[in-house]
Design a protein around this nucleic acid. Structure first.
Length: 563
DNA sequence: GCTAAGACTTGGAATAATCTTG
DNA sequence: CAAGATTATTCCAAGTCTTAGC
C-alpha cells in the first residue's frame, strides 16, 4: 500500500506539473465534457453540412461510406545521365540500376551531418551491399573508397536549375501538382468530399532516425501496390491499382478511419493514408511507454524515468526539497528542470531510489497503463495526455490574466500574448534549435531600431525649431507646422516602440517553439476571448490556416469566456 | 494479467511559398 | 527584381493509448 500511496502523491505533483485538487478536478471535468461535445458537434457539422446534432455514436463505427482513388505512388527512379559518374577507389564504375538508385540516396545527403555518423554509414553500407549484384559486391567493399561527389553535384545543380526556372514553367509545375491533389487528394466520406492528409506513399530513401538512433541510414524500401492494403466501403468504386499491379488486400473496415496502409521495413510498423486533421481539439510530462532496447534512440517519459535521470536536493538555492530532472524526451530533446516538491513526494522519491543502480527504473512498479488506469479512477476519460492539454490551456489563461495590461497598445499586448504562449511552450518543453539566421536577423532589427532613434532625434530637433519659430512669428502656417512635427514625432515614437517590442519578443523566443502548443494544446476560445476583450485583431494571433481550423471558436467565443 | 499489434496524435526538420529589401 | 529573410506547409519519425491474442 505504501507504494500505491507513494505513486499517488508523486502523481499529484510530477505527472501533471501542477496540483490536482478537487477544484481543478472539477474544472477539468467540465472542460473535457465541453470539448467532447464541441468536437463531435463540429464533426457532424462538417460532415453533414447541416445543423449541429447530438452525437449518436454506434460503437466503433467511423463511417458508412468511404470512397477514394488509393495512394499516389512515388515516381519511379530515373537513372543518372551517362556523364555523371560514381567512382570506386578512384575508378569510374557503372552501377546497376538498383545499386545506383541507392547510391543517389546517399549522394544527395552528402552535405548532411548524418553522413558523418558512423552508425549511419555502417547501416547504409550494409543495406546497400544487400542490393548489389554479385559483381558489384566483389568490387565495392569499403564505403571510404566510394566517391559520390559527382552524384551529389548533379542533384545540387538540378535543384538550382529548378529554382531558376522561368515563371511560366514554374506555373506549369504548380498546376500539375494541383491536378494531382484534385485527382488523389480527396475522398468521399459519408457523402462528403474530404481532404486527405497524406495521399502519397513515402518515397524510398535512407532512414533518418532522430537522436542517437541505432537504425539511422538503413534503406527505406520503395512501397509497391503489392504492399498496400486498401480500406473503403464495399459498395464504393474500388480504387484501381497501377497497371500491371495488384493490391495486397482490399478490406471494408468501417471501424477505422484510414484509407490505405502498408508495413514499413525499418521498424516494421504500419503507415497509414489518413484524412486531413480537421477541426479537433487537440498536458507537462509525457507518460513514457516502454520501448524496445536497441531498436530506437534511448529516450524516456515519466513512467520510464531511471534513477540516473533525477537528483534530489534537500536544499538548493534557498528552496527545500528540489528534484532536478535531466533526461532525453521525445525526439531526443533534453528536459532539464529543477522542481520544488512537497516533502512526502520528496521522501517517496528517496525511497524509490534506495538500493538501485543508476540504470534502474525509478518507478519500477508503475507502467503507463497502470498510471492511466489510476487516472481513470480519479475521473472518467482522464489520461496523462489529457492532463498535458488541460495544463497547457489553464496556464495560458492564467498567464494572459497576469501579463496583459489593458492600457497597453496593441503591440505590447501581442508581446504579452506571446509571453503567455511561451510560458506554455516552456511548460511542455517545446524547444527548437536557435534558427540559423537568428543573430543576423536580430542585428538587422537592431540596425532598424538605431535608425529609428536617429530619426526620432532629428524629429525632436525639428519640433523644437518649429516651436521657436511659431513663438516668433505667430502665423497660422507656423502653428500648423508645429502640429505636423508633433504628429510625426508621435508616429516615430510609436514605431520605435513597436520595433523594441518585436526585438524583445524575438530574443525571448530564441529557443522556444510556439507552434505546437498553439495548434495542438491550447483551447482556441481562450485566445479569441482575449482578443475580443482587449481589442486585438484575431489575425495578429492566428494566421490564415489557423483561423480556418479554429473558425468554430472564432464564431462562438465571447470576451467573457472562461476556461 | 501480460505482451504485441494496430490506430491515431504529436512535433521538429525540411521544404515550399511568400514577403522584404538593397 | 533577385537574393535573402520570414512564414506556411509538408513530411514522416516518434510518441500515446486502445485492442487483440494468449
Amino acid at each position: 500500500m505504501r507504494i500505491n500511496i507513494g505513486n499517488r502523491l508523486w502523481l499529484k505533483k510530477v505527472v501533471s506539473g501542477m496540483w490536482y485538487d478537487t477544484k481543478s478536478s472539477h474544472l477539468l471535468n467540465t472542460w473535457r465534457r465541453q470539448c467532447f461535445w464541441l468536437v463531435t458537434a463540429q464533426r457532424r457539422k462538417g460532415s453533414a453540412g447541416s445543423r449541429w446534432q447530438e452525437e449518436k455514436s454506434e460503437d466503433g463505427v467511423k463511417w458508412k461510406q468511404l470512397e477514394h482513388k488509393g495512394p499516389y505512388f512515388a515516381p519511379l527512379y530515373e537513372p543518372l545521365p551517362d556523364e555523371v559518374h560514381f567512382y570506386y577507389d578512384g575508378k569510374a564504375m557503372k552501377l546497376s540500376l538498383a545499386t545506383e538508385e541507392i547510391a543517389t540516396f546517399y549522394g544527395k545527403m552528402l552535405d548532411h551531418e548524418y553522413t558523418t555518423k558512423e552508425v549511419f554509414q555502417n547501416n547504409f553500407f550494409n543495406d546497400w551491399r544487400k542490393e548489389m549484384t554479385v559483381e558489384e559486391k566483389k568490387i565495392i567493399k569499403h564505403l571510404n573508397k566510394c566517391d559520390f561527389t559527382e552524384i551529389h553535384k548533379y542533384f545540387v545543380d538540378k535543384n538550382e536549375a529548378r529554382k531558376a526556372l522561368p515563371k511560366e514553367e514554374k506555373q506549369k509545375l504548380k498546376e500539375e501538382a494541383e491536378r494531382l491533389q484534385e485527382a488523389f487528394g480527396y475522398c468521399i466520406l459519408d457523402g462528403h468530399r474530404e481532404k486527405i492528409g497524406n495521399f502519397k506513399t513515402e518515397p524510398p530513401g535512407l532512414f533518418r532516425g532522430r537522436g542517437d538512433h541505432p537504425k539511422m541510414g538503413m534503406l527505406k524500401k520503395r512501397i509497391m501496390p503489392e504492399d498496400v492494403i486498401i480500406n473503403c466501403s464495399r459498395d464504393s468504386k474500388i480504387p484501381e491499382p497501377p497497371p500491371g499491379h495488384k493490391w495486397k488486400e482490399v478490406r471494408f473496415d468501417n471501424t477505422v478511419t484510414w484509407l490505405a496502409s502498408w508495413t514499413e521495413n525499418i521498424q516494421n510498423s504500419i503507415k497509414y493514408i489518413m484524412l486531413n486533421p480537421s477541426s479537433k481539439l487537440k498536458l507537462a510530462l509525457r507518460a513514457g511507454n516502454e520501448k524496445e532496447e536497441g531498436e530506437t534512440a534511448d529516450t524516456v517519459g515519466c513512467c520510464s524515468l531511471r534513477v540516473e535521470h533525477i537528483q534530489l536536493h534537500r536544499e538548493l538555492d534557498g528552496q527545500e526539497h528540489i528534484v532536478e530532472f535531466d533526461f532525453l524526451g521525445k525526439d531526443s530533446i533534453r528536459y532539464y528542470n529543477k522542481v520544488p516538491v512537497e516533502k512526502p513526494v520528496f521522501k517517496n522519491l528517496q525511497l524509490f531510489m534506495e538500493n538501485k543502480d543508476p540504470g534502474d527504473e525509478l518507478f519500477d512498479r508503475l507502467t503507463t497503463s497502470t498510471l492511466n488506469k489510476h487516472l481513470q479512477d480519479l475521473m472518467d476519460g482522464l489520461t496523462a495526455k489529457v492532463f498535458r492539454t488541460y495544463n497547457a490551456s489553464i496556464t495560458l489563461q492564467e498567464q494572459l490574466k497576469v501579463l496583459t495590461n489593458a492600457e497597453d497598445n496593441v503591440a505590447a499586448k501581442i508581446l504579452s500574448y506571446n509571453r503567455a504562449n511561451r510560458a506554455v511552450a516552456i511548460l511542455c518543453n517545446h524547444q527548437r534549435a536557435t534558427p540559423k539566421t537568428f543573430e543576423k536577423s536580430m542585428q538587422n532589427l537592431q540596425t532598424k531600431i538605431d535608425a529609428k532613434k536617429e530619426q526620432l532625434a532629428v524629429a525632436k530637433q525639428e519640433l523644437k525649431r518649429a516651436k521657436a519659430d511659431a513663438k516668433v512669428r505667430k502665423s497660422v502656417k507656423s502653428k500648423s507646422n508645429v502640429d505636423k512635427k508633433k504628429k510625426l514625432l508621435a508616429k516615430l515614437e510609436e514605431q520605435l516602440m513597436r520595433l523594441c517590442t518585436q526585438a524583445t519578443d524575438k530574443e525571448e523566443n530564441k529557443q522556444v517553439a510556439l507552434g505546437t502548443s498553439k495548434l495542438n494544446y491550447l483551447d482556441p476560445r481562450i485566445s479569441i476571448a482575449w482578443c475580443k476583450k482587449f481589442g486585438v485583431p484575431v489575425e495578429k494571433i492566428y494566421n490564415k490556416t489557423q483561423r480556418e481550423k479554429f473558425a468554430w471558436a472564432i464564431d462562438m467565443a465571447d470576451e467573457e469566456f472562461e476556461f
